[in-house]
Write a protein that binds this DNA or RNA. Sequence first.
DNA 1: TCAAGATTGATGCAGGTGCATCGAGTGGAG
DNA 2: CTCCACTCGATGCACCTGCATCAATCTTGA
Lengths: 165, 165
Amino acid sequence: MKRKPSTEATSAWIRLMRVQSRVLDCVEQDLKKAGFPPLAWYDALLELSRAPSGELRPVELERQMLIPQYSTSRLIDRLVDEGLASRRECKIDKRGQFVEITEAGRELQKRMWGAYSAAIEKHVGSKLSDADAVKLSGLLDRLGCSCGEMKLPPAVNVNETSPSR
Amino acid sequence: MKRKPSTEATSAWIRLMRVQSRVLDCVEQDLKKAGFPPLAWYDALLELSRAPSGELRPVELERQMLIPQYSTSRLIDRLVDEGLASRRECKIDKRGQFVEITEAGRELQKRMWGAYSAAIEKHVGSKLSDADAVKLSGLLDRLGCSCGEMKLPPAVNVNETSPSR
DNA sequence: TCAAGATTGATGCAGGTGCATCGAGTGGAG
DNA sequence: CTCCACTCGATGCACCTGCATCAATCTTGA
């Protein structure tokens, strides 16, 4: 008798949920213990710093980060409150605006990468050979394109990187 | 020149974050669209239904589900509010209590498994051969035991299953 | 040109989460 | 027995999230 989700598939599902929540938790804790803000801030700062002239429309940021619109809006609020970014009106489309990373923002992003990369190494890199990491990536990618489209740059720039939710 | 977290490791990290959040989202949405409560409720109901005489100490539930104490406490509140479980005082240890699943709780858990298992099949099973699912599980397991201990039953009962955060 | 519809971004509200802390109760050392 | 340290579970607070909805603006097409 064939079950609908095979025991193998279900077991993979369980591990996917458990392991990522555990690993994410570890990484977030490491960042927090080093006195840094949450990963989402890093992701946003990185996207901004990579953008031409360090600015993006909120709508772009939202697409890059795969988070909902209201979430982007409030994340930007917080970045602006902390002086890490600033809003600038958009001349051509007066509904919109630009968000520009500040020097403080760029600097924080760089400092965070130190702690962040160390955490990735500690919680992922050190547990997996490069070959296994590649295998894992490949298997995960196969799960990626079910409901909606996938956003993944053809070749990820992995020296300073932007993952997460 | 060797980077600290290899590009391979970082890439695996990115995918782990992105793919699980996407897949989890899909599954949660499917459940919600079918009119069911969040996955955490299912996990709790399943643990309770599996326990001898359908009851557990909150502390046990907490350990099974790997969620913080206050989170367990409030989850139980909600289950009780909905008539899916009930609290019973613990004679032997008057600090504590037992949480017992009700008939409505057992029934909901069973109904949820229908939608849940279909979602697992749709978003995981159908994307991966059983052999690949096993490989994926194996690789994920290697990431599992970094900070704290892992709780994984030696052989997972995968006909009705309990994953998640 | 102008009305209908789509897009951009903000926000009020309800609920969930993490953190710190509390009170009650237990158990072990002296 | 008494005290002290610990475990169990609840809760006030701040913040974060999802949802629905809004106002402003842009675009389309008749």
